[in-house]
């Protein structure tokens, strides 16, 4: 469904991605794993259209999207949940969801179903985004993107900075999204969290993909995990 082919990207003069290639098959969950600064978020930004790759191709359902504006990529069916949540702090929870929803994006994720998935948010719907907790903000960020009924969900480090108890709930919610057939590309440092969600893994280091394979194989291979993932 999503395909990176030899994608390279730079921030100014700094090379941050070098010939990255991988694939996210329809209906599956793929996790990008790697340490801080490995290039995971950059891959996500390229897929969302927030950073233009200077070489290589990014295809979504066969269509080249590497040069499209972010809003066009979103309208093709790619929903992006950024690393730092970036919810609209001055808008209420309901208004945040309203931003994510557009005419022509009607689909399974109605407001009712979103609130059923994240019951906390339903109670907070009239509170401002800046007034809710970090975990609730993370759920709001996912909910806001779901409101646009994407077919591919890009989740950039959703577990970052969340308490273990909240993580469980979050993993369950993401698991449910996957069970409903949503394709997911997840970026994560936490191997346990990623293993609970993803079927496949891509290990990223220094802007390059070092290893690709089944999530189970990575989780089982301690040497591999130690080489690329432990601090």
């Amino acid at each position: 469904m999503l395909e990176f082919e030899n994608v390279s990207a730079r921030y100014g003069r700094a090379q941050v991605l070098l010939e990255v290639s991988f694939e996210v098959p329809r209906g599956r969950a793929v996790s990008l794993l790697g340490r801080n600064g490995a290039g995971k978020s950059t891959i996500m930004k390229c897929a969302a259209g927030l950073l233009r790759p200077h070489e290589g191709r990014i295809r979504f359902e066969g269509r080249e999207i590497g040069r499209l504006a972010a809003y066009r990529i979103n309208r093709l069916g790619i929903g992006y949940v950024p690393e730092d949540r970036r919810i609209f702090a001055g808008l209420t929870v309901a208004e945040n969801l309203q931003v994510g929803r557009r005419r022509g994006t009607e689909g399974p994720w109605t407001e009712e179903r979103i609130f059923a998935l994240f019951p906390n948010l339903a109670e907070l719907r009239h509170r401002r985004g800046g007034e809710i907790s970090g975990g609730e903000q993370q759920m709001l960020a996912i909910a806001r993107t779901l409101a646009g009924n994407p077919r591919l969900l890009l989740l950039d480090e959703p577990a970052e900075g969340l308490a273990p108890r909240i993580l469980e709930g979050l993993a369950a919610a993401i698991g449910q999204l996957k069970a409903e057939g949503l394709t997911i590309l997840l970026s994560e440092q936490n191997l346990g969290f990623a293993a609970a969600i993803a079927d496949q893994a891509c290990v990223v280091e220094s802007g390059q993909v070092r290893w690709r394979g089944a999530m189970a194989a990575l989780a089982a291979d301690r040497e591999l995990a130690r080489a690329y993932l432990t601090v």
Binding site: A69, Y71, N74, R75, Y80, F88, G100, R102, T105
Partner: peptide, 15 residues
Amino acid sequence: RAATEDREMLGALGV
């Protein structure tokens, strides 16, 4: 109002 806070994110949400 959302644009006054984060214009880039608005684009990523399809606006």
